[in-house]
Design a protein around this nucleic acid. Structure first.
Length: 573
RNA sequence: GGCCCCGUAGCUCAGCUGGAUAGAGCGACCGCCUCCUAAGCGGUAGGUCACAGGUUCGAAUCCUGUCGGGGUCGCCA
């Protein structure tokens, strides 16, 4: 049920007829032909740019083509009129019954807006992937919410989605974690911890130290580091991942796969990924040019094993081995993405923090090389979250102990507010998050605004239930405000597909606010014109014709909020 | 200096991958509850879409350059 694609199909059919009748030349590309809502609804219900797209290739005037097209379209019973306007737009007005038909279809279906656009293709969405060395911070939370909503959105349009987290448990930072946890272990044994510079000072490691005492007693105290480092590291990273899973859980974010970087080492998987690149002639021994412009003080030329990423769009080649011969982090990333490709995904999406912007080109180069350009990789960069308290920037410092974790924020404002506020901004724009203002129950808080609309719907439906008004009867759309709501409902499938195609879940959030706005407007017209109220006391027949519209609004809001992971409220208090 | 992102109303931001007279919220001003929830609604005011070129029927949107803000730049992950 997608009114715009239905009418577009009708337009395409008319264009084919024109071609076969010699009114248009053969073989014109139709990809750019759109059928969309006009900016001004006074222009009609839909507008197509077909004549403008074809004018040049057909060597005729756009308005002339539009005129002929209009003649073919009026044969469609769903189309009441088609008028040429402006430079050659064709404004289409739909027949009266179309809108009530749409509303009835929506209010009686459970899956309005879903589509088979994805055709069951498999997409891997990797997000969060924070180091397992501490609690998630607010920036991780934004990536988590974005990735989760994007995954839901893609599922909604028919993709087979895997939500994945890459655990960076293979580098030096987890050794530092182990040493930091060991100091907390000593502390739990009654000794003074010595937390050196560069260690993780957070008190969240104290429970790890205590758990180590339960496991080992005091037996580790006199042992040299090499005897305990591996065990303590594994134990501590497991505990950190437990904590991160809990943090994500408070936001309602869950993963299908947790992929361990460490699992790549010693398994030969890095070697096989690199030999795959080697077979393509993309691995060589060489010396990189120094960085252009600003020269680092300690730069000196070194011979390294390099990946020829410039062959796939990168600015310079990238080292896969450190000078001591061990793998760079990039090498394990290559192996990880080789693994993803070999698992058969049609598309990969990585959600990174903006500070990883420098890795975009090389990762795309790797995936392009390893998949012979068959698997597209889209990397979504998530910009900073700046925390505010009452309009003033909130400075955080781990040392001063006023560090605000994701958990702190969710505990304070709740998962629904956290999620929607983060989704009301494009991923590539910085986000100001004011811990006090997001809780104000005012009009500028989209969470309350949208949930209020849904609560009003539920209130009406409850009232209808009490009065015995059936909610499955044909609707009657008469007033302009009712029509405006129906039009907005009609846009939903199209909006969902656009948002999914561009990997931009924020569009769903903005759409829901617009739909809520139209609904609130209609609701308030019921103050001025009681005949517009959905429930007409004492007149079941009239009420039955009005109840489908709010019901349809409720269905769209609730499925939209479902994509965003926000609870649709039954009541407002 | 190289690369990436951003620049739209006083403020915070949308703008449906190039469409018609650029939109919303906040702030300001004026209105609307004996009425399904006023946490809502209607109206007024506010713009050289950073700047300059280019591409074409048509540009906030695409290309080039300039200015301003942020991020990032070989043996960290």
């Amino acid at each position: 049920m997608n009114l715009f694609s239905d009418i577009r199909a009708s337009v395409m059919e008319a264009l084919e007829t024109m071609t076969s009748m010699g009114e248009l030349p053969e073989g014109l590309p139709t990809d750019d032909v759109t059928v969309e809502p006009p900016r001004d609804s006074a222009h009609g219900d839909m507008a197509t740019n077909a004549a403008l797209v074809f004018a040049k290739r057909a060597r005729s005037r756009p308005r002339d083509i539009a005129e002929i097209l209009a003649g073919h379209l009026v044969g469609d019973p769903r189309i009441e009129s088609a008028e040429v306007a402006g430079p050659g737009f064709l404004n289409i007005r739909l027949a009266d019954g179309i809108w009530s038909g749409l509303v009835d279809a929506v209010s009686n279906s459970g899956n309005y807006g879903r589509s088979d656009m994805g055709a069951g293709k498999r997409i891997n969405v990797e997000y969060v992937s924070a180091n397992p060395t501490g609690p998630l911070h607010v920036g991780h939370g934004r990536g988590a919410v974005f990735g989760d909503a994007l995954a839901s959105l893609l599922e909604f349009v028919g993709y087979d989605v895997t939500r994945e987290y890459y655990i960076n448990d293979g580098g030096a930072q987890v050794d530092v974690l182990a040493r930091s946890a060991f100091e907390r272990y000593r502390e739990a044994c009654g000794l003074a911890p010595e937390i050196a510079d560069g260690m993780y000072p957070g008190s969240y490691l104290m429970f790890v130290g205590e758990a180590l005492v339960e496991l080992y007693g005091e037996t580790l105290l006199d042992q040299p580091e090499e005897t305990w480092l591996g065990d303590v590291r594994d134990f501590a990273t497991d505990r950190m991942m437990d904590m991160i899973r809990e943090d994500l859980g408070t936001l309602g974010v869950g993963m299908d796969v947790f992929f361990s970087e460490k699992s790549l080492y010693g398994s030969g998987r890095i070697d096989s990924a690199l030999s795959s690149l080697s077979e393509r002639g993309l691995i060589y021994e060489g010396v990189l040019d120094p960085p252009k412009g600003k020269m680092p003080d300690d730069w000196e030329p070194r011979r390294q094993t390099l990946f020829r990423s410039t062959g796939h769009g990168d600015d310079m080649d990238r080292p896969v081995r450190k000078s001591d011969g061990s793998w760079t982090y990039f090498a394990s990333d290559i192996a990880y993405h080789f693994d993803k490709i070999s698992r058969g995904y049609d598309t990969l999406i990585n959600v990174f923090g903006a500070d990883h912007g420098g890795y975009v080109k090389r990762m795309k180069a790797v995936v392009s090389a390893l998949s012979d350009s068959n698997v597209p990789l889209d990397i979504k960069l998530i910009q900073l979250v700046r925390l505010y308290r009452n309009g003033a920037p909130f400075k955080m410092s781990k040392r001063k102990g006023n560090f605000v974790t994701l958990r702190d924020v969710v505990d304070r404002v709740g998962p629904d507010v956290t999620r929607l506020v983060m989704l009301m901004r494009r991923n590539d724009a910085a986000l100001d998050f004011d811990l006090d203002r997001v809780l104000e129950q005012s009009r500028d808080n989209p969470v309350f605004y949208i949930q209020y609309a849904h609560a009003r719907v539920r209130s009406v439906l409850r009232r209808a239930g009490e009065l015995g008004i059936p909610t499955d009867q044909p609707s009657r759309i008469e007033d302009a405000a009712e029509l405006a709501v129906a039009r907005k409902i009609a846009e939903w499938p199209r909006l969902v597909e656009t948002a999914a195609r561009s990997h931009e879940p924020h569009r769903v959030a903005f759409y829901l606010r617009e739909l809520a706005s139209e609904f609130h407007a209609l609701w308030n017209r019921g103050n001025e014109f009681p005949g517009l109220r959905f429930v007409q006391e004492g007149d079941i027949a009239t009420s039955a014709g009005k109840i489908a519209l709010p019901k349809a609004v409720g269905i769209v809001i609730s499925s939209g909020l479902g994509i965003l992971g926000v609870t649709p409220a039954e009541h407002m208090h």
